[in-house]
Amino acid sequence: MDLLLRRLHDAGFAAQSVRVATGGVVAMAGIATMSDGSQVFAKTLSGSGSDVFEVEAEGLRALRELGGAVTPDVLAVTPNLLVLQPLEPRRDNEERFWEDLARVLSTMHTTTIGDRFGWHRDGWLGRMRQDNTWDDDGYSFFAQRRILRWLPEPLVEAAFDREDRRALEHLCAALPELVPPQPPVLTHGDLWCGNIASDQSGAPILLDPAVSYSWAEADLSMLWCSPRPPASDRFFAAYTEITPLADGWHDRMPLFHLRELLSIIAHGDDNWGAAQAVREIAAPFARR
């Protein structure tokens, strides 16, 4: 927090104190109180020179300007500091909150249909690059940029044997059989509960995106498969009421979540069975 306080001062913020904020897994984050009593949310990294905060700020702007989502105001961005408006905790137990979030995501996914998959620059997922190279084919994009991209990472290589990797490759080859045709749409890219908060009015506000044009169901899978409160079931009921999904969407959620599981392993966070979860998803393709 001392480092965060110094960097706030260097950026011209008259911060008097910083209280640790929880929820993130990469940056050091806190709620800073200024000399006039106002507050900001700020985060930094121990190193410097990365474009991670620039990319994050751009992603927030895209969600707001292209997708119509509520995102926090960006007050400052430098290579080692991001300062945002203060946020409120999610209203986890209110079904109305999750209904509102469903409307936000449905609107974003149905009004941003593009003609190819990817983004004009690579992004970040945690501490690692997200490959957003443009591709006209969604199956190729998801296979190469969201699943197979992780296999050369050292910790992923160590976690899986040759047969495991072949099963994942066979699964990727079968994607056209498994996933109904879907257009590329603007996606948040890292839509777990830790990246959803409230603004002062109680409306859902989206944080820390890893944006790209991808399949809408890939966004839904992150929320579906990650720990979430019971009231969030209303999100999926409301989303599918507004924007019906192709039959079998429940069964496709773990498939799309492979990207997140492989990322967890690559980051060294596989302390709850991510590798075994990957094997279970890929098992039907082991001998195809």
Score class of each variant (00 low, 15 high):
268 G>S: 05
171 L>A: 01
166 R>Q: 15
231 A>I: 10
270 D>K: 04
270 D>R: 07
268 G>Y: 09
208 D>V: 03
138 G>K: 00
137 D>Q: 08
264 I>C: 07
261 L>E: 00
159 A>T: 05
241 E>H: 11
149 R>Q: 11
173 A>I: 09
211 V>P: 00
154 P>F: 05
189 G>S: 03
224 W>Y: 15
143 A>G: 10
207 L>T: 03
268 G>P: 03
148 L>P: 01
215 W>P: 01
190 D>C: 03
176 P>K: 04
235 F>I: 06
136 D>K: 08
222 M>Q: 05
166 R>W: 13
194 G>I: 05
243 T>H: 12
252 R>E: 10
183 P>L: 15
160 F>V: 09
270 D>L: 07
256 F>Q: 00
229 P>H: 06
206 L>N: 00
215 W>R: 03
178 L>I: 07
206 L>E: 02
206 L>C: 13
161 D>W: 15
228 R>T: 12
200 Q>K: 15
269 D>A: 06
154 P>I: 05
238 A>Y: 02
145 R>K: 13
147 I>P: 00
155 L>Q: 06
265 I>T: 04
173 A>M: 14
220 L>G: 02
202 G>N: 10
210 A>V: 07
215 W>N: 04
252 R>K: 15
258 L>M: 11
153 E>G: 06
240 T>K: 09
265 I>W: 03
200 Q>N: 15
239 Y>S: 02
256 F>K: 00
210 A>Q: 04
240 T>V: 15
159 A>M: 13
182 Q>P: 15
270 D>T: 05
138 G>I: 11
177 E>F: 08
184 P>F: 03
141 F>L: 07
200 Q>G: 09
216 A>N: 09
180 P>R: 08
258 L>F: 11
219 D>F: 06
246 A>F: 07
264 I>V: 12
158 A>L: 13
141 F>W: 12
159 A>W: 04
218 A>N: 05
161 D>K: 14
222 M>L: 13
269 D>S: 09
192 W>P: 00
149 R>F: 13
209 P>M: 08
170 H>W: 10
199 D>N: 15
148 L>G: 02
237 A>I: 14
146 R>E: 03
200 Q>P: 08
150 W>M: 05
172 C>R: 02
224 W>H: 05
172 C>E: 03
248 G>S: 10
152 P>F: 09
212 S>L: 02
268 G>I: 13
225 C>Y: 12
242 I>A: 12
256 F>M: 05
191 L>E: 02
253 M>S: 08
265 I>S: 02
179 V>W: 02
